[in-house]
Design a protein around this nucleic acid. Sequence first.
DNA 1: TTGGAATGTCAACAAAGCTGACATAAACTG
DNA 2: CAGTTTATGTCAGCTTTGTTGACATTCCAA
Lengths: 165, 165
Amino acid sequence: MQDSHSGESLLFLTDEQLRQGIEAMFFAYRGFTADPDRILAGMAYGRAHHRAVHFIARAPGTTVNNLLAILGVTKQSLNRVLRTLVEDGLVEAKIGRTDKRERNLFLTDEGAALERKLSDAQRARMRRAFRDAGPEAVSGFRQVLEAMMDSDQRRRYQALREGSK
Amino acid sequence: MQDSHSGESLLFLTDEQLRQGIEAMFFAYRGFTADPDRILAGMAYGRAHHRAVHFIARAPGTTVNNLLAILGVTKQSLNRVLRTLVEDGLVEAKIGRTDKRERNLFLTDEGAALERKLSDAQRARMRRAFRDAGPEAVSGFRQVLEAMMDSDQRRRYQALREGSK
DNA sequence: TTGGAATGTCAACAAAGCTGACATAAACTG
DNA sequence: CAGTTTATGTCAGCTTTGTTGACATTCCAA
């Protein structure tokens, strides 16, 4: 399109380009959450429950404190969500073996079923987007997103990647 | 790993890859909003005000209805935000010339100053991310995000791009 | 002139974040 | 062992931002 010979490293960073990137994030994030939101709309759960269930599925046995750090919310906020999930039998909180203060979080079968339902919907959209854009684009997508994270969030993101290799 | 015989165009679309994409969106979006959020924390405004101010700056003279469609919220929700911005003298709502039912929205100098402050912070992060990732990656980033949008949101996104060429 | 569109507003409510304070049990430390 | 710190849970209250529903006003257009 426009760039690039000499200053390709600068030329594409016009305010207009950056603004488009900002708006792309905004609109894409709506799409990103739209499908799970629709599924959850009927139930007594919301986006916060989805996030909790997602990361418990991702790292079974994780502690409350770890989940807190990943989600970046207060324990009160998380606890409200977690309590309803435990009460409803979607999540099990087992007392830690080595450290009995800790609670290790697991999905029950029912919890795993919900996670799968939400995850399937979200992955379907991601799959479509990845397929439409192609492998090259996917690589760039991830590079930019990773560069956009706060460094501590990036560490957590990378830890999750490592953990599930 | 399960799939895929049919080739590289499918090979990279494992559930694990998709899941990483999902988590990248989650963590990156936190970074994306972190800087403006920090600035707004002190004031009586929030993310919703930022969004309104952003799109009014982007398309001066836009109507309430148009803004509604872009932001994807109810008029009551937007109205609450818009009212405080008008009361505080950051936004001016001019009665439409051709259709007097419409309100054409503009930023005042003060509103433009706030918009710049928020925008500068958000662009700085985007600039860093774009620079770190490189032009190729930026292109891929935008392709994937665009593919992830709902089609109506994509139309609005593209309309904004056209409008400010 | 009447119907419908665009807008504004009131009331009530819900989701999900926040702070602050306090309780309990377990682990660690001196 | 005593005292402190850590992990977790919980109560109360507040804020932001979203929602519905109802209703008023204005005014274009058939």
